[in-house]
Amino acid sequence: MQVAISISEGRLSSATLMRRLRSNSRKNCIYKVFREVGRSVRTVALLRYLADPALRARVTAATNKVESYNGFFQWLGFGNNGVIAHNDPDEQEKLIKMNTLLANLVIFHNALDLWTWSARWWPRAGPSPLMSSGRSRRTCAHIRRFGAYATDEIAQESAAFNPELTEIDFTAVGLAA
């Protein structure tokens, strides 16, 4: 309580407190107190988890959902089996972001497919088995990880790029240059 009051009154800066806690000194009283408070909070959380079956079910469901996404994310990553071979943090971040974007696009596409399918199916046959089971029966079987590319269109000339954008009236929105 003294630490919280000292920080709120401005007598102790949070940077100073963090510097004292980072030292990991066993002699530091603040470190010992926070370590014991953390242990008691963890113990209370574990006791609640053990005593409440509904909480355990929620935690298990959330964990399974995250693990399922991580498995899908790993399956979707191709090229070197998803192993990031670069030591450059920028390259690592770029690869992870691109794989996340790809995973989100596949999930969005699946959601659109399910929505289209259920919109056609729902009015005729009563409750949807997809909606009642709580999960889709289709997971990754319909996804072509490496794509299907038509090579007969490679020889066709594409239309020339027009940077002028004459078909758009920018004066209407006040963006005229």
Rank of each mutant, 00 (worst) to 15 (best):
A176T: 09
R19E: 10
A85V: 15
H142F: 00
N81L: 14
T116P: 02
I96T: 13
P163K: 03
P163E: 04
Y31T: 02
P89S: 06
P123W: 04
I143T: 00
G147K: 02
I84L: 08
L101D: 14
Q92K: 15
L101H: 08
F73G: 00
S132F: 03
S40P: 03
V41G: 08
N28L: 06
R19K: 15
S13W: 10
W122G: 11
R56P: 05
H86W: 14
L21I: 05
H109Y: 06
M131D: 08
M18P: 00
R120H: 13
R120E: 13
A103F: 02
T166Y: 00
Y31N: 04
Q156P: 01
L47K: 02
N87E: 13
A57Q: 08
S23C: 09
C29M: 14
V33K: 07
L12F: 04
A57K: 09
A54H: 13
A150C: 11
Y49S: 05
N99E: 15
R58P: 01
A111P: 01
H86D: 15
R137C: 04
A15D: 09
R48K: 09
R137N: 06
Q74G: 12
T151P: 02
R135H: 09
T16N: 11
P89K: 02
T100Q: 15
A57F: 11
L101M: 12
R124E: 14
T16C: 09
N104S: 03
